[in-house]
Design a protein around this nucleic acid. Structure first.
Length: 552
RNA sequence: GCGCCCGUAGCUCAAUUGGACAGAGCAGCGGCCUUCUAAGCCGCAGGUUGGGGGUUCGAGUCCUCCCGGGCGCGCCA
């Protein structure tokens, strides 16, 4: 039984024994940040104060005076809080349970194997992935990992927008590059894609096709669009491979049209009275529901807007059996998100079905200062170049280290450092140091190699663990599953970074001060503790898509 | 102008979702390697949480008004 369960049982028991009411919901518990507030504490007295018409401090004192549990050494009332101190034996028993759970430690059965989708990146195939998409790739993948750990059957999906005006512009831009390669002075269209990446493709087409398309025509549009989309997708796949993200499903906009989903969902909205006609177009009645404007669903030329397709896409997701969908999107899509959610509400889909993880943009802080990026203007840093320079681990870690809702300033100089200043290495190095101890233990014969070594650790006598840092380490390890759950449910993988840096921050001083090998009985106990620490570090890093190296 | 997000140490950011005296890492200063990797450890200094008002036993967190920044306000995606 973990710390919280133990404390909850103790508090529930004393409430019952003193015939006090239980608060609605669970008994609140916190991990105090100061040692003088105990190992775990509860603000329950504040919750009972109103009902009992007694001051919180008095209630807390009552509870502290009467609480009794074999695993608690002490209970104090301070400022209305009930502070509990756990016996070292109980902590050591918890460590034993963590070791027994092994790799599965940190997982939850909450999702019950139900299908959940994380849709992310979904960048238009109009250019390579930029640093901004990198944040989304890292974020989405980490969330997918986290929800898998919560027991959901997770699908990673990329929505591919292979039709529409932006693609038209892309094709036109590529055609211009093609003409340029043939020595003609055709400019890239206004608002088109000015990045260099189209230049070599234009040259290639010039060699291959010669002067086959001297004019911009429907035939040219067709040909250049097909090549452009195909080449851009190849580029994007390359970028995703570089950062180590892969998708289970690639869905295409064109597919939704062909299957008639778009038309059908539009009709459904119209039947619900959510649509009106004006200026030859069809609009959704959004202002009636408090949104700031009515958007167009079907243009006057009869083609559906991006929003209309997006709504249909989400209906389709529901029909495909997902019980929960999380879309990772940039802050520039918030209005769109409100419109989609509203449409789903009108259509009667369950409220919690669709959720958005909205993230702010990334700016790069290098020597030249902070730069803004734009794919269309060709002013951006390709994600792959950044990964090639810094490594996948650094890029991934930096991208998820901040709360998604906050702007991310990517500090290139810090990221380039291979020292303690770089938080990724700080965490990874803790893992490496432990690995090193195990290598040394095997070499010196203090611990046999796997599988016998781990078996011995599972059966180890943990009673020599009484150093305060050792007990702190156990308390940190005990928190891990809660961090995983919280990081997933609040869409905040950065909480995992915080945790891992904290865990490494307990380990490093301990390592520096306390010798593990050659300490007789204590050695096996310490190896067991470090085994658990190493497992949690590795698992935490894995959830973020970052490696846990044995050697650095 | 309207809507959404943000403002915390010199810098980059946390803060268990309303809890205790607001915490880290850089940058600054001073110490620690013949012992499992110094990519490390220890110590010092650093704050009116943008500002005012309000709700609450209790506010960085909720409400309100200012100030400053970002994003959006297309029959683009």
């Amino acid at each position: 039984m973990r710390l919280e369960a133990l404390a909850r049982a103790a508090v529930a028991e004393v409430l019952k024994r003193l015939s006090l009411p239980s608060p609605p919901g669970e008994i609140p518990l916190e991990r105090p940040d100061k040692a003088e507030y105990g190992d775990i504490s509860s603000r329950i007295a504040f919750l009972l104060a109103k009902e009992l018409k007694r001051p919180p401090q008095e209630i807390a004192r009552d509870l502290a005076g009467h609480i009794s549990h074999p695993d608690l050494s002490r209970a104090e009332a301070a400022g209305g809080f009930l502070n509990l101190y756990v016996r070292p034996e109980a902590l050591r028993r918890i460590l034993g349970e963590i070791i027994a759970e092994g790799e599965g430690y940190g997982d939850w059965p909450l999702g019950g194997g139900k299908p959940l989708q994380v849709e992310f990146v979904s960048s238009n195939p109009t250019g390579p992935l930029t640093v901004g998409h990198g944040r989304q790739a890292a974020l989405g993948d980490a969330l997918a990992n986290l929800f898998s750990a919560l027991g959901w059957e997770v699908t990673r999906e990329y929505y591919l927008n292979d039709e529409g005006r932006q693609i038209e512009l892309l094709a036109r831009s590529l055609w211009a590059r093609y003409r340029q390669a043939l020595g003609e002075d055709v400019p890239v269209p206004e608002g088109g894609y000015h990045g260099d990446y189209l230049v070599p493709i234009g040259e290639e087409l010039a060699r291959e096709w010669g002067d086959k398309y001297p004019e911009w025509s429907p035939q040219a549009a067709e040909a250049f669009r097909a090549v452009a989309v195909e080449r851009m997708m190849a580029m994007i796949r390359e970028d995703l491979a570089a950062i180590g993200v892969s998708f289970d499903v690639w869905s295409r906009e064109g597919d939704l049209h062909r299957r008639g989903v778009v038309r059908e969902v539009f009709e459904a909205l119209r039947e619900r009275g959510a649509v009106y006609e004006k200026d030859g177009a069809y609009w959704m009645r959004s202002t009636e529901y408090g949104l700031s404007r009515d958007p167009v669903l079907i243009r006057s030329d009869g083609t559906p807007t991006y929003l209309m397709v997006d709504i249909a896409y989400h209906v389709d997701k529901y029909r495909r059996g997902f019980v929960r969908v999380i879309d990772v999107q940039g802050a520039d899509h918030v209005e769109e998100q409100q419109q989609v959610k509203l449409a789903l509400r009108i259509l009667g889909y369950p409220e919690g079905f669709l959720d958005y993880c909205v993230h702010q943009f990334v700016t790069l802080k290098g020597r030249e200062g902070i730069e803004r990026m734009s794919t269309r203007r060709g002013k951006f840093l390709r994600l792959k170049d950044l990964v090639d320079e810094l490594g996948r681990d650094v890029v991934r870690y930096f991208m998820v280290r901040r709360r998604p809702g906050a702007h991310l300033v990517f500090d290139l100089e810090l990221a380039r450092k291979t020292s303690m200043e770089n938080p990724v290495y700080y965490v990874q190095y803790a893992h490496t140091r432990i690995a090193s101890i195990f290598r040394e233990a095997e070499r010196s014969g203090e611990l046999p190699a796997a599988p016998r070594g781990p078996e011995l650790l599972r059966a180890a006598d943990l009673s020599p663990l009484e150093d305060p840092d050792e007990l702190s380490l156990i308390k940190e390890l005990d928190r891990f599953p809660d961090v995983v759950r919280n990081a997933a449910e609040s869409y905040g993988p950065h909480l995992l970074c915080e945790y891992l840096e904290g865990l490494a921050g307990v380990f490093h001083p301990y390592y520096n001060r306390v010798r593990v090998l050659g300490q007789g009985e204590a050695t096996t106990a310490r190896l067991a503790l470090l085994w658990a620490t190493k497992t949690v570090l590795a698992k935490g890093l894995a959830l973020l898509g970052v490696s846990a190296p044995e050697v650095m």
